[in-house]
Nucleic acid binder design. Structure first.
Lengths: 182, 182
DNA sequence: ACAAGTATGTAGCACTTGCTACAATATTGG
DNA sequence: CCAATATTGTAGCAAGTGCTACATACTTGT
């Protein structure tokens, strides 16, 4: 029964869990410490400041996000961009992805207010999704790079509209898209 | 020199100003009161609670947003959807619109966390923009309703990508769009 | 004029925030 | 073993949070 050594690495997982469940707004030191089974005192000791803690935490969460994407690989290749769009929309709508979606808008808001670490975390998540999407496009797609960027733009727009209760607009919007090289 | 009667209507403008300049995060009672030249005590007196104050404030800001859109009417009609998209992108990139853009992501984040008033404010702003965009489409557009929704979806996606420092993806995405009926 | 509301100032409460001082223990290298 | 270092607990601070109690005014309708 070796006592687990407490370190950044052992503290990050439960804190990431807390943030994915409750968002960043209530993620102050004492609730985070409670979730990790320590005290605010120790969080400062291990991370130096809340600011650096959050930076590390966002980075760690981006890694979790990467794993979640990796695990949803596989399944046979798709034959049209339309089909690909539907698959990605379905992926982002999965129940296990909802905590990330909820967190996502806080990250975007934080990035526009120049909170340290937010922009980096947001950007890395976008690039992950973009690269993953390229692997989802039809094999014979004439322009996977451009196609993926186009689809990603549409998808993010649709997700935002969904977030403010305008799903209908997004649905009509997606339906009206001529998806370039089909 | 009649003393101006202090009321909700006279308090909202300076508070809206404060929120557009500083965002919603630092908009606690005392800073808001200071911006409006009163005390937190009076804000509670006039609005009942901070929750209701923010609801009213978001509604009021949505009205300001509507005015800003109205004022940018005019200019001759455009002849292609592509041109329309560029015009709307230019509109949302205007300096005077940036406070709204910064505030926007806080509203979206708040909406996903069910903060009262946020979803309503966000939705009304989206519909305003959508309706305005319909007036910007080419007169001979075969499907202004669907076209506007499609363009709006693209635009919101591009704005989000821009917010997390992925402008390049958005530009490529917009460039790859086949804009339906041109 | 007088009672009844309306409006406002001053103080404060109970709580949370990030963070620190101080002391105690655990671990480890010589 | 013993000294240095790493880790942790307890307590607290100064500031900020939404909100309230209480005492004033200032304006009304009668």
């Amino acid at each position: 029964m070796a006592k687990l050594k407490i370190s950044r690495d052992s503290l990050l997982p439960p804190m990431a869990n807390f943030v994915l469940e409750n968002g960043l707004a209530p993620a102050s030191l004492r609730p985070l410490a409670k979730a990790a089974g320590t005290s605010d005192r120790m969080l400062i000791y291990h991370f130096g400041s809340k600011e650096r803690l959050i930076e590390d935490l966002l980075e760690y969460i981006a890694d979790i996000y990467a794993d979640a994407i990796d695990q949803s690989f596989g399944g046979e290749r798709v034959t049209t961009r339309q089909e690909c769009l539907e698959r990605v929309m379905a992926f982002t709508a999965k129940a296990e992805m909802q905590p990330f979606m909820a967190l996502w808008w806080e990250i975007v808001a934080g990035a526009t207010h120049n909170k340290p670490g937010y922009l980096e975390a947001g950007r890395s998540m976008i690039w992950l999704l973009l690269n993953w999407m390229k692997t989802q496009l039809p094999i014979d797609d004439p322009d996977p790079e451009g196609g993926a960027r186009y689809l990603l733009t549409m998808i993010e727009g649709a997700l935002m509209l969904r977030a403010v209760g305008c799903d209908e607009i997004a649905r009509a919007g997606l339906g009206n898209a001529d998806l370039g090289a089909a």
